[in-house]
Simulated assay, not measured.
Amino acid sequence: MTREIDYGNLMHTAMRSLIKTVLQDVADNGLPGNHHFFITFDTNHPDAQLADWLSDRYPGEMTIVVQHWFDNLVIDDDGFAITLNFGDNPEPLYVPLDAIATFVDPSVEFGLRFESAEHDDEDLEDSIVTELEDIASRESEPKPATEKKDADVVSLDSFRK
């Protein structure tokens, strides 16, 4: 029997630990600066807790935004509890860490996506970039396109004696 190191699971564990550390800091100190999070999670996860009307409205997957108004952020070893505002109705949620599909902080263009083993590294990188671009386009006002200056071409002959 050959033993192998399961880098995929080790990486997922490290990434979830990072999310847990970041959320604990926010629970202790609040959100610094312009930081905010888009967290997509599996609403069908057996340990996910959300109101029936939310799971009916978001079967399979839901993205929450931790930004302006949130309350009761409590982190434990397996996930986090948070109360968010849905149309002026505060709703408590519990999100297991292993139910998280994406974690994005668009203020610093940081994102994590948990993929299955069938995706290769290039697909993963492309999907994170696409996710960040999608979020950035939803957040910001359209900006006028800036003209890119063509590169200056210098002949090597000008340096020869």
Rank of each mutant, 00 (worst) to 15 (best):
M1R: 01
R3K: 09
E4Y: 06
E4F: 10
I5D: 14
L10G: 15
M11V: 15
H12G: 06
H12N: 07
H12R: 10
H12F: 06
L18T: 12
I19S: 06
V22M: 02
L23V: 09
Q24A: 07
Q24M: 06
V26S: 00
A27R: 01
N29V: 00
N29C: 01
L31Q: 04
N34P: 14
F38G: 12
I39A: 03
I39E: 02
I39C: 02
T40A: 10
F41M: 05
D42G: 02
T43I: 11
N44A: 03
H45V: 08
L50C: 05
A51P: 00
L54C: 09
S55Y: 01
S55N: 01
R57K: 11
R57F: 03
M62S: 10
T63W: 01
T63H: 01
I64D: 09
V65R: 15
V66A: 04
Q67V: 05
H68Q: 12
F70L: 01
F70D: 14
D71T: 08
D71N: 10
D76M: 12
D77V: 00
G79H: 03
T83E: 15
T83V: 02
T83C: 05
L84K: 08
N85C: 09
N85F: 13
F86V: 14
G87N: 10
G87Q: 11
L93E: 07
L93I: 05
V95L: 02
L97D: 02
L97K: 03
L97W: 06
T102I: 03
F103K: 06
S107L: 13
S107F: 11
S107K: 01
L112T: 09
R113E: 14
S116T: 08
A117Y: 09
A117L: 12
H119Q: 14
D120N: 14
D120I: 14
E122H: 10
D123N: 12
T130Y: 04
L132R: 08
E133T: 05
E133W: 13
E133G: 02
E133Q: 12
I135K: 01
I135Y: 01
A136Q: 11
E139H: 07
P144C: 04
K148M: 12
D150I: 15
D150S: 13
A151Q: 02
S155A: 05
F159L: 13
K161W: 10
